[in-house]
């Protein structure tokens, strides 16, 4: 029986563990601590928890100041606000000086659900990966979110963690290894096409692979939790091996993970690519499951893209 938990809970649990391990860890929130799960840290370490109120620009500016005073701040809000409202603070104050600020942007993606398009972050990967010095991580599940949060704390520099609201299937296993920033993982091997996925789409990529196998198509699935820096070595290897890619993300197609993959492939080993993602539209209200289906963010959407890209192979 598959285990279903939200990545934001992995983040929240990791923060509590980090609080015990490292007295330099401080957590900030912007009045969403019950949703971002930072309240758990706040209850345990109230003196190291700062609720900044509904003021995201100052959330990030304050986090930057705390890092300059020697602390390791984790600043949280919904991704749409953390990455959007505080964009210039993240660029000019945090990333330019490579300050040790971690941003936990929860409620990323269309699976925010009923709240609708205003609260569904679909652009954070794009906004964050374009800034020099920024590291961008999109965990696939609870275990990976927890491991990635621990790794972000060890790393010295700005990190954006994109986390989700909804419960998602656990597909990774970090019981015997740490999360390595910048490393992609082969979830399943294959020879006809590579499905490169991030976040909750990696689980759908595995489902698509099974359905494709029944049709006689051998698909490799590589999971890219770190969008920046990208695991280009792994991309190169699989471009050579399969000569076709499908990228999958719960994000705008423009400037997201798929675009990052294309930037690398087109300049180093030109490869046909089809991209699964949100195609230049806003989301809407609905259940997460309904929305994923309506926007083609599921195994069927991936299978369709695989069929198309295989035809493009020379």
């Amino acid at each position: 029986m598959a285990d279903f938990k939200a990545t934001r809970n992995g983040y929240g649990e990791a923060l509590v563990e980090l609080g015990a391990k490292n007295s330099k860890v401080v957590v900030l929130d912007a009045d969403l601590s019950k949703s971002t799960m930072t309240y758990m840290f706040g209850e345990k370490y109230p003196e190291r928890f700062f609720n900044m109120g509904i003021a995201e620009q100052n959330l990030i500016g304050t986090a930057a100041g705390l890092s300059a005073a020697g602390f390791i701040p984790f600043a949280s809000s919904f991704g749409i606000f953390a990455s959007g409202r505080a964009y210039e603070q993240i660029r000019n104050i945090v990333c330019y000086a490579k300050l040790n600020v971690k941003i936990g942007g929860t409620h990323g993606g269309i699976t925010v659900g009923e709240d609708g398009a205003t609260h569904q972050g679909l652009e954070e990967i794009a906004l964050m990966r374009v800034i020099p010095n920024m590291t961008v991580i999109v965990p696939a599940d609870f275990d990976e979110a927890k491991a990635a949060t621990m790794a972000a704390c060890e790393y010295n520099g700005p990190v954006y963690l994109r986390l989700g609201r909804d419960k998602v299937e656990t597909i990774t296993d970090y019981s015997n290894r740490p999360f390595e920033i910048g490393k992609g993982y082969v979830l399943a091997d294959g020879s006809d096409v590579t499905i490169a996925a991030t976040g909750l789409m990696s689980a759908f990529a595995l489902q698509a692979r099974s359905a494709l196998a029944a049709k006689g198509v051998s698909a490799a699935v590589i999971h890219l939790p770190t969008i920046k820096p990208l695991d280009t070595k792994l991309l190169y290897e699989y471009a050579q091996k399969t000569r076709a890619f499908v990228t999958c993300e719960e994000h705008q197609i423009a400037c997201g993970m798929g675009s990052a993959v294309c930037e690398f492939l087109s300049q180093n080993i030109p490869t046909p690519v089809k991209m699964v993602g949100v195609n230049d539209v806003f989301g809407e209200s609905g259940t997460p499951k309904e929305l994923l289906e309506a926007y083609g963010l599921n195994a069927n959407g991936i299978i369709k893209a695989v069929d198309e890209v295989v035809k493009l192979k020379k």
Binding site: N58, I60, G61, A64, G65, L66, A68, A69, G70, I93
Partner: peptide, 21 residues
């Protein structure tokens, strides 16, 4: 870093909180 207005002041809040902590 200063110049993007308001940001140095905001940074000061974190700095003052951190020094006090």
């Amino acid at each position: 870093t200063g110049g993007p207005l308001g940001q140095g002041f905001s940074f000061s809040i974190g700095m003052a909180l951190g020094l006090r902590l």
